[in-house]
Design a binder for these strands. Structure first.
Lengths: 194, 194, 194, 194
DNA sequence: GATGAATGAGTCTTCATTCAT
DNA sequence: TATGAATGAAGACTCATTCAT
């Protein structure tokens, strides 16, 4: 059967509420128990619904994951693009600090969701056509280097290192005070890019 | 049924060879097709053996993964401990460079195996009681700081960042020239820890 | 829940119209996509209504099929009984020609509906208590034989053959010119029953 | 998993026996209960095996049906081609009599299997690329007409009629004595093709 | 009247594991 | 030592039907 999510009509408030429940449930299960344990049944349980109800709202398990991933990227973009553009206009150092600050704080604020998306992407990477964070960041760094506001280093390798630290942060956050951790990481890469 | 791996008797050379075939097959399948696709059947196929034969040599799928993980850690230790100890005795900078160099080159040299272990740990982390790389490294860094051979930074955060870069390297290796990449990363953290 | 079709009250014109839409939709889906694809959802879609609406008008999927089958038989009878009775009064040959002519032309004129009923009966035969066409026809043939207007043959076997050709016609109609095909079949059985 | 039926190796006697059991079970279920009721579970029950065992021997439900269809066509060809070729060489009348005789007796001898294949083809026709009986027969008839051993009629329509009677025979056989029924049908078409 | 939401029952299929040979 | 055969458990998905609004 066609699921409601395939229709053109806008969703009613009730539909949205139920869908959000399910997305939240999926996030919780993925974060807590991992990808392998995230069966539709398990997600339905967490959403206090039956398996069939979950598949009524999302025609496919994949469709749930799509939405989990999409939701994170949308929120992320919304939170991060503005400040980053502003900082990029001033200096490489400011850009880098902002990039790290917004990314790390976003991750801290959405730890479970970020972990859930990690689980999905680790197992279904090919299915998603996501922007390549390394290339984007590498370009920002190279531009700043050309503008003379950052030192000498290979921007691709540096971008990889920065993304690796950011992507690993969701597993480490909570072990340190957030403000302190963010400050340390900004300091680290500020020194490294001098 | 009891598998041969549970017995007290040492394994014959033939048994060891067969077991190694299976481990290699598991590594290849995990690296190439991912965790979800790594069924016992698929591994058996890759090992040119039957499913039952695989489970004769390893009583459980989990036992295969245990061995895949263990083998990597053992080889890793063997390759890295000596040089690291030597360097640690001289200076923090040398220790750090050696840590990065040995780890990154080891990963480059064992990419498939490392990726296979990534797949396993991402999906079965709780099952393994692995040494915490961050704590170990953090201790090395702190010691060097106390000895005055490294600058001022939070060793835990720095250790986390270094491990994040190392752990992410297996996905990035191949995109850059190895010597160049290793040099850049050593340079990065040398500056960062001044 | 009780559906409107179970009530004693006569149906309003609107209700009848809606019911007819649904029957037509069911016919189209069965004819086009076959029995297996004919879900209530699919039928509702084709009727531009919701699944629940369909089941409001017909309490059961089976009830829809009942009506599809019944409608065909009623239309068929209405179209065919008159001419057949008239011809039966004259001669066996005339009766047979009329039987074939009315049946084959009816099928050609209601191909989709006939195919839909085929689909239903092939899959739910036991559920319907339909008049046995072979016995009826066999009696007509036997009577004509006794009246001396048809030759010597086993009327049961002949009736079976005639019904087989008629029942298969809906799959073949369209491959030949209708008038020609009907004439050929009449000729065939006229010769065969001499 | 890969099912044994996909392998290149010839099947052992045991495998063949089990596979035959399953095919027989499928035939029985399809013949007795119809296509809709023929779940893998139901077939497994009839074969005194578990559902998983059935899917061990045939990787797919479809693969079972393939084999049911194939087996019938192979047996059919084997039984019918020889006699038909011989008779075709003599006269149209002999050819037609042989065609009917071999087909009808084959159906009578394999009623359940024929009905099972009917069920499959009615519901999965597109999946099979079967020879078109009507065209083949039509050619035989036309050839005989050109040779002057059969009368004047449209061979396509006649072929359709003959196939319709043959294909309907599996539902009628048992209601009449076989020898008598076959004789009557041969007589019918002999007269019709004069 | 009409329909969105919910769900139990059932379908096919995958897979790790057991066992007899 | 090796493996063919068998299977229980679990998973994703479909569908007819019910019910509240």
């Amino acid at each position: 059967m066609q699921s409601i999510s395939d229709r053109a009509k806008p969703l009613t408030r009730t539909q949205q509420a139920r869908r959000n429940d399910i997305i939240q449930a999926a996030i919780t299960v993925l974060d807590t128990d991992g990808f392998a344990a995230a069966s539709v049944d398990r997600i339905a349980q967490a959403a206090h619904a039956s398996k069939a109800t979950v598949l009524y709202h999302f025609s496919t398990k994949e469709a749930i994951y799509d939405q989990v991933v999409r939701a994170l990227y949308e929120t992320g973009r919304a939170n991060m693009v503005g400040p980053l553009d502003a900082a990029t206009a001033t200096s490489g150092k400011a850009m880098l600090a902002t990039y790290l600050d917004t990314n790390l704080r976003f991750i801290a604020a959405h730890k479970a969701h970020v972990n859930a998306v990690h689980e999905i992407l680790q197992n279904r990477f090919a299915a998603y056509d996501l922007p390549d964070g390394i290339t984007e960041l590498s370009n920002l760094l190279a531009t700043a280097q050309q503008a003379g506001t950052l030192g000498d280093f290979d921007p691709t390798v540096m971008a990889f290192a920065i993304r690796a630290v950011i992507d690993g942060f969701s597993f480490h956050v909570g072990h340190v005070d957030l403000d302190h951790g963010v400050a340390q990481i900004i300091d680290l890469f500020t020194k490294a890019t001098k």
